[in-house]
Amino acid sequence: MLEVQNIKKSFGRLEVLKGISLRVEKGDVVAIIGPSGSGKTTLLRCMNFLERADGGTLVFDQDSFDLAHISKKEIARIRRKTAFVFQNYNLFLNKTALQNVMEGLIVARKLPRSEAEGIARQALEKVGMLDRENHYPRQLSGGQQQRVAIARAIAAQPEIIYFDEPTSALDPELTEEVLAVMRQLADEGMTMLVVTHEMGFARNVSSKVIFMENGVVVEASGSKDFFQRPRQERTKEFLRNISKSPQKEN
């Protein structure tokens, strides 16, 4: 369904992505893990054009796009099929929970208000936030905000949702409520590409794991294989470290 080939990105002299390739099939839940600074966020941002990649190809539903030269129109077309969940939620601060979910439907997809409201309520219900529909982001906890952000993502009925460390800004107690929502989405067959340092999620929920370091993919495999039969020395070392230390590696 989605494929990236040889994506490259530098910030000035700093080469952050050194030719990353990956594939996501419909219904896949792909976890991207790796130490901080390895370029995971940059990868997702390039895939959704929040950064312009220096090179690489994106294949989406058989259509192929040159990432360095993609047009605004094509960007808009691809964004219609994707949604993004940010580490720090990025809910529209001047909009209530319900309005946050409706906004894109009304403005970008031009749905009639009543229809948008119906879809938005359903999405909020799914993440257990319907009772807070009239709250503004600043009146919600981090976990609640992230759940509204997930509702905003699913309301757009995307083919894939990108998550950039959706729980790493949250207290441990709030992490679970967000992970539960993501697990439910995975069970329903939603295609997801999730940058995470929640090893439980990568092991038990995701179908594939990609281990990234220093702008390259070190190892990519099915999640069972990844955790039980890692091939690369570096992967083994990484897995040993995270099982040893109670701290999260991000």
Partner: peptide, 15 residues
């Protein structure tokens, strides 16, 4: 205004 607000707009499909 935090830059994430604009990015969230883009990701929601808004211009």
């Amino acid at each position: 205004v935090p830059s994430g607000q604009l990015e969230a707009g883009y990701c929601a499909g808004m211009s």
